[in-house]
Design a protein around this nucleic acid. Sequence first.
DNA 1: ATGGCTGCAAACCGTTTGCAACTAT
DNA 2: ATAGTTGCAAACGGTTTGCAGCCAT
Lengths: 158, 158
Amino acid sequence: MSGLDSPSETLDWEPKLASYLAERGLRITRQRKVIADAFFETAGHPTMEELLAKVRETDKNVGQATVYRTLRLLVEAGLAEQSNFGDGTARYEPVSSDHHDHLVCRDCGRIVEFYNDTIERLQDEIAKAHSFAVEHHEMVIYARCTQTACPHKAAAKS
Amino acid sequence: MSGLDSPSETLDWEPKLASYLAERGLRITRQRKVIADAFFETAGHPTMEELLAKVRETDKNVGQATVYRTLRLLVEAGLAEQSNFGDGTARYEPVSSDHHDHLVCRDCGRIVEFYNDTIERLQDEIAKAHSFAVEHHEMVIYARCTQTACPHKAAAKS
DNA sequence: ATGGCTGCAAACCGTTTGCAACTAT
DNA sequence: ATAGTTGCAAACGGTTTGCAGCCAT
């Protein structure tokens, strides 16, 4: 209908962010552009620190506070999602068309995304049964890779 | 078989804790007793702060560090579980015979526990399909009470 | 007596905030 | 010109840790 149907990666964030900012009199700054660019072209679930590192490849002077503030903005604009995988550090990922939950390896930190329709439906039903209106849910399965090689064997804390 | 079958509340923690400590040459101290007592007779999902308050009704001199350390001990002993409901503060609850997940009201902070067999089974299947051995999972549904009165209307931040 | 435990205070660490200078509009 | 934005550093809040003295064993 409206051009290319990309594989849920390209979520056309630029116009969305622009209008979000415009609507409330906020500005499109150089830093916001650099941060959003870095964020949306990063695969995975970066922490602020990881994103900051990437941002500084482009602009060495960006401060962490600005990255935090911009991430909050992206979350508010519905373009990013924040998750917690139990290590006390927030992680962020682009909001893609398809919602998913996470499976985290306790050993190597590898994060696998999954989606299960039945679980989603049951969650809604359960909430409804308790007279709650679901806003958001977070489901993290902590587990251990049973494969021969944890792909990120020493990624966590070298 | 072994005496009374209690409604999953009484989990017979005293002997379990005692043997856990004994096995590794740790000691049963006055503070540990007071803290465990307070913890297991508390309903709900107390934070360290809440537990400390209760503990100090009995012993004014207990320090927070001791409460943190004892809670860690209880978790290690498999007698307590730690959860995070998105407010940056850890909450603890006794490990009861029946596992359950949580439904949290964004408005009033009320926490409802639920259990769904199908979800549990699906989680295991999903993990297995990705060659992960489930260790633990945490599922939190953030929602809003739709009932006329949020029972704890102003409990969060007065 | 000995080695674990405690309370205190300081350290930690991720995140937020105040502020003066800066910049998009 | 004006109000939003930035980087810095300080503040924050929950949690952990070092240490000297204490206490269960």
